Amino acid sequence: HNLTITQGKLFFHYNPKLCLSEIHKMEEVSGTKGRQERNDIALKTNGDQASCENELLKFSYIRTSFDKILLRWEPYWPPDFRDLLGFMLFYKEAPYQNVTEFDGQDACGSNSWTVVDIDPPLRSNDPKSQNHPGWLMRGLKPWTQYAIFVKTLVTFSDERRTYGAKSDIIYVQTDATNPSVPLDPISVSNSSSQIILKWKPPSDPNGNITHYLVFWERQAEDSELFELDYCLKGLKLPSRTWSPPFESEDSQKHNQSEYEDSAGECCSCPKTDSQILKELEESSFRKTFEDYLHNVVFVPRKTSSGTGAEDPRPSRKRRSLGDVGNVTVAVPTVAAFPNTSSTSVPTSPEEHRPFEKVVNKESLVISGLRHFTGYRIELQACNQDTPEERCSVAAYVSARTMPEAKADDIVGPVTHEIFENNVVHLMWQEPKEPNGLIVLYEVSYRRYGDEELHLCVSRKHFALERGCRLRGLSPGNYSVRIRATSLAGNGSWTEPTYFYVTDYLDVPSNIA
């Protein structure tokens, strides 16, 4: 807008934040220059609390790290170098490059900038070799853009010569660093050979998330399962459950009422301010606690030095998902009996873990797994792929695949051998790939016309006998059925096997 004052003059007093240069501009645009008398524009009460600059400061050096910015700028000295009290560095987070010096300023003089007072450097006698002032900004957020400017702080001049310097606002972004852990990993099994893994992005990506790394490792069953005799009275049979499938998407929606109208769909109840505040506090606490764990609990591995020492970490090797089922080394339970199943799973520490690289999504279907087997899954978020990966501390989750139908069934015939004193040795093959492992066998036998009897055969007993022995049988026709019990439950009964026990007292003698 054009402003013209045809008559009258300007009068400025007691404006401590208004620089004289701005008042002189007002004289020019209003056409009143030359009308004012000496005392109409006070030299001592206008701009006496402001830094009124008329020179431009330029930054000469900028260096960044993930949490620091090192700045240096060209030296500046007023005509009387004693008038320079120091520099004021202003900075704040700036997602967009549209910041002005006066953003967030209120009537009390406060604003949204963080201000650092910096002492002037030592003055050199040689004007050509003056030290460049600077400042190291610490405690910054990774991968965050900051708006920065600097200006001088000078003393009051009796001659009211307006001098000083100020830089333009520059924008500097800190470097990326390792992201925080992925949030809320959930693993479920939808079949006997697959596990579905879902997660949420890290709360602090500290860069642009480029991919996720998912490692999985087959877990050995508890050692007590191999040692305890679950045929003993009072000892509860062990059981394991597989990871249940995901709930429906509708039930997972946030901010939804727990109660549904019987007449149909209901609208979600909005969260109160107290609920939102509580969630923010919980989120802040979780982030602080995660940072504490990362800094205190997890110790970084030592990389190899120039002395030739090897990095103890196993090298990563990509495998196809079809090879995942046989990740671990199978060892027989008892070496003397080769027909026992290889369900003991000690994992070799030198073995390469299978892994998958996930790009542009937060889910993965891990296939080719062994049925009813526990897996430990390790999830890392990465925001750099080359020249070397920059990934987060791992988040861990466990899951067990679903049982395989008929995996616990005894394959092959049940054979028998009759000894003296009416002892019958029953023999059968253990299931080759049971659900988890076989903890015991149930032997059901009966003599024709009598009630059915049951015998429990422990895992250890089966390994020693290759089956079991029935003792003290009365003469007669017998039928026997056997079924295995694994961590997933009972298998199917075998087809009945028949044998006849004679009275050993009636056996004919070869003595003449």
Rank of each mutant, 00 (worst) to 15 (best):
I482R: 01
H425R: 14
D409A: 03
H425I: 13
V443C: 02
S342V: 14
T494K: 04
G234F: 06
E224T: 07
V480C: 11
A309E: 09
A330L: 15
W216H: 06
L437V: 07
N255Q: 04
V359G: 08
T502M: 14
D506C: 12
L237Q: 03
S479K: 07
L280V: 12
I377D: 00
R316V: 04
F355L: 10
S479T: 10
R469V: 10
L235V: 10
T386I: 15
D408E: 01
F419C: 14
L277P: 03
P387G: 11
A394K: 06
S341Q: 08
T210S: 04
S392D: 01
E356A: 12
L505Q: 06
P244M: 14
K361Q: 11
S479Q: 11
P475M: 10
I377A: 14
S479W: 13
S474A: 10
I418M: 01
E227P: 10
P332Q: 13
I482Q: 01
E362D: 13
S257W: 04
W242Q: 09
K432D: 13
R466W: 14
S341V: 14
K406E: 08
E356Y: 09
E404L: 04
R483S: 07
F246E: 12
E227G: 14
E282G: 10
L437M: 04
Y478D: 15
V424L: 10
I366P: 00
C456G: 01
T333N: 12
T288W: 15
D204L: 07
K317F: 14
Y500L: 10
F289S: 07
R447A: 05
S341M: 08
R353P: 09
G467N: 02
S341Y: 15
L464K: 04
G325I: 08
P244G: 13
N383D: 07
A381Y: 02
T340D: 08
K406R: 07
R319L: 03
G207E: 02
I410S: 10
S243D: 07
R390L: 08
G436E: 03
E388P: 06
T343N: 13
E290L: 08
V331R: 07
H352I: 04
V329K: 03
R353M: 08
T485E: 02
P431Q: 04
L426R: 00
I482P: 00
S283N: 06
E389M: 13
S458F: 04
K302R: 13
E433K: 11
V443H: 00
R316A: 13
W242I: 04
Q219C: 04
P300I: 04
W216P: 05
S320T: 09
P238H: 04
K406I: 11
L455F: 05
T494R: 02
S257N: 04
P300V: 10
S262G: 10
E356S: 13
D323W: 15
E281C: 02
D291A: 08
N477V: 04
S305F: 10
T343K: 14
E495Q: 06
K287P: 07
V501T: 05
H461W: 13
H454M: 05
A407L: 09
Y292V: 06
G322P: 12
G467M: 05
G412S: 15
D222K: 11
E452C: 14
E404Q: 13
E350K: 10
E227A: 06
V365H: 03
F226I: 07
Y498E: 14
N295S: 11
S315W: 09
L437W: 01
T415R: 14
K236A: 15
V296R: 07
S398H: 11
D261K: 11
V414Y: 01
T415V: 10
M402A: 11
D385M: 12
P431Y: 01
D323V: 06
V359H: 15
T401Q: 00
P434V: 07
S458N: 07
E451M: 13
V424Y: 08
V297L: 07
L470Y: 01
P244T: 08
S257L: 12
Y504T: 09
G368F: 07
D385K: 10
S509Y: 15
F462W: 13
H416D: 00
A405D: 04
E265P: 08
N421H: 06
L440H: 14
V439D: 05
A335P: 12
N255M: 12
V359R: 10
S509N: 15
S262D: 12
V507N: 15
V501W: 02
E281S: 12
R469F: 15
R471M: 04
R353S: 11
P403S: 06
N383H: 05
R218M: 14
L470N: 01
F499Y: 02
D503K: 15
K271S: 03
E433S: 14
E217L: 07
V397Y: 11
M402L: 05
E420N: 15
R319Y: 03
L455C: 10
E221L: 15
Q256K: 09
G472Y: 10
K361C: 12
Q275V: 10
